[in-house]
Design a protein around this nucleic acid. Structure first.
Lengths: 362, 362
DNA sequence: TTGTAGGCGTTATCAT
DNA sequence: ATGATAACGCCTACAA
């Protein structure tokens, strides 16, 4: 009796009540509390509700760490990107995170920064934290690093896999189709001198997009010209330089296919700096359809990757894998050509457009 | 003897060896292994090294979840943003994550999407996971939600606090100084009709930037005109509309201060769509200095927020708090005016520039 | 210098 | 329908 009166008081000042505290408050055993909270039908409706009420009043939160220790599942996944500051990674992550949240998973985000030392640390942190699964969105990820992740024995899904075939589970954009589509679009507009600004780091995605570009040329029987290929690093600054080099050419290209939108952003900048106009003097295309693509001047013709959707798909795959499915395979998502204002037919005159006489070369 | 021979074999197929497995392999007790791995000087150098070697060979990784259960520290923090797809959030997160990683912390990233239901889920997930600390970077976060987070009893640091004074620990940009600086810059160029495109959601940051704008006008004794104020939502699309409305005015503004770079992006777009030129017809300024600001056409005059640095500072503050410090207070970081090409002196002629006669109004 | 015992907060397996 | 007990993997006393 007396003890009842003492122990029944819900102590609202209790900071992190454990299941045992709730049990004491409700005058039942901890397992009963556990059952009540998990809505186990074994517990009587009445006591179940009473316990849940008491737990709620006490602000009880089950400890995911204690649960994880027992169940060996942390309801947690890890995502690795090269850098979150990259809008592509951000958009994909957004899709991953929302889907994960809807299924009760929390997600660690790690930024490798293409730094091997950092990558080591990430592997260690992920391994110690006993994640249930991993998604790698970083195309710049080191080749040695992926096997290390694989050693953890948890499912891994890749987005825009840098090593096709090496890992079974991935979601990928159709790089060659997409790139071929833009190039074809330019050819249809009448372009013959079409340049390509790639990514010097030798990524799979660049290789594939370059292949799409060449395929389109070939299909139209336009000879490939080595001098029309330049390389940036997938960022705007290097692309500005690459484009400037292209603009030094004796005979200018009438159009430029860029590896991605960031590259196109830099290319656009270079064209304007040289006093030329897009698309009047030169057409420019991108790849990705990042948020700013509709707002460049002129708005950018590009190939859309459904980034958010790709994040969702990657997470869906991972969920399947984590729930025991052995294979989900590679999901290929279709690229979509979006034509805006940065592409138009080349000048009618055969003479290549040049800035006001004598500006580039003396 | 016999047992030795059996148990000494390092079993490389062991998936997740526990500390006891290592102990068996090394013929010592688990606590000794624990001590060896923590480089406790009590354990003899020789056995210590032997144990560490064996542990390494077996691919042993201590379980952070088990350790966390005991130590009550998870070495994990949570970051809440409105949306990761926002470049500002991405850059700040990057600074947070790198600093966290350097100190052995992993970080959960949650995307609230300004959805109250989602926010509830995030609070629950964070609470159950027993995070050591939280950083909220989301200015769009609901007012009711922060107290819920606070109930968890862990340190919280805010970036660009939406409720000044409500939470003690924060890192903030000098909104009014920054905004005043751009407005002053425009005034110095000779502008008198300066518009402001704000954020209709009524954020603290918008209020402050607007205040800076008005302060600059006042200091220059330029009367404030209600009709020169429009509202977007901090994104490019709504800003395009807002700017269009401004361009319907009988007497056009000669310059526009935008709440942020995204807004400026939309404003630039609207100006071009109306056949006007920047900065010839109208000057445009932003706030943030996102990566694309140097690449707009023309490059954008704006106010730089050191976003990565702010992320670092927030994490540093959180680290102090988590290590027991009671107060770190609010850190104010200085904004920096960066002048590019989107601002210039207004036309000399008193007559406001208008697109080719009769285009806007009939 | 090393081993033994206990407990962190859960859930699962037995009893009752 | 509920309670007692054990176990998850680790670390920290305390004992030897």
């Amino acid at each position: 009796m007396q003890t009842d009166m003492e122990s029944n008081k819900p102590d609202s000042t209790m900071l992190r009540p454990s299941i045992k505290d709730i049990a004491r408050l409700a005058n039942v055993s901890h397992p009963t509390v556990s059952r009540a909270l998990l809505n186990n039908p074994l517990v009587s409706k009445k006591t179940g509700e009473r316990i849940r009420r008491i737990a709620k009043e006490a602000g009880y939160r089950p400890s995911a760490v204690a649960r994880g220790l027992l169940t060996r599942r942390t309801q947690t996944i890890g995502v690795v990107v090269t850098t979150v500051a990259d809008p592509f990674a951000g958009a994909v992550f957004s899709g991953i995170e929302q889907t994960a949240g809807d299924h009760g998973y929390s997600v660690f985000l790690a930024d490798s920064n293409a730094d091997p030392d950092r990558e080591r640390k990430i592997v260690q942190a992920f391994a110690e934290r006993r994640l249930d699964g991993i998604i790698v969105t970083s195309s710049r990820v080191g080749a040695l690093y992926l096997p290390l992740l694989a050693e953890m024995g948890v499912p891994i899904v890749l987005v825009n896999n840098q090593f096709p075939g090496a890992f079974a589970h991935a979601v990928m954009i159709g790089n060659v189709e997409g790139s071929r589509a833009v190039a074809k679009h330019l050819i249809a507009l009448g372009h013959q001198r079409i340049a390509y600004i790639g990514d010097q780091s030798g990524f799979q995605s660049d290789t594939e997009r370059f292949a799409g570009y060449r395929a389109a040329l070939k299909a139209a029987q336009i000879p490939f010209r080595e001098e029309l290929v330049c390389h940036g690093d997938g960022k705007a600054e290097a692309a500005t330089l690459a484009m400037s080099r292209l603009l030094q050419l004796h005979e200018l290209p009438t159009a430029v296919c860029c590896y991605n939108d960031m590259t196109a952003l830099g290319a656009l900048h270079a064209v304007h700096s040289h006093g030329l106009r897009v698309p009047d003097d030169v057409s420019v295309t991108g790849f990705d359809d990042l948020f700013f693509a509709s707002y460049t001047q002129p708005p950018l013709t590009t190939v859309r990757q459904p980034m958010y959707r790709m994040g969702q798909l990657a997470m869906d795959s991972l969920l399947s894998l984590m729930s025991g499915k052995k294979m989900v395979g590679t999901i290929r998502v279709a690229p979509e050509l979006v034509v805006r204002k940065s592409t138009a037919s080349p000048r009618k005159s055969g003479a290549p457009a040049k800035p006001a006489a004598g500006s580039n070369r003396r």
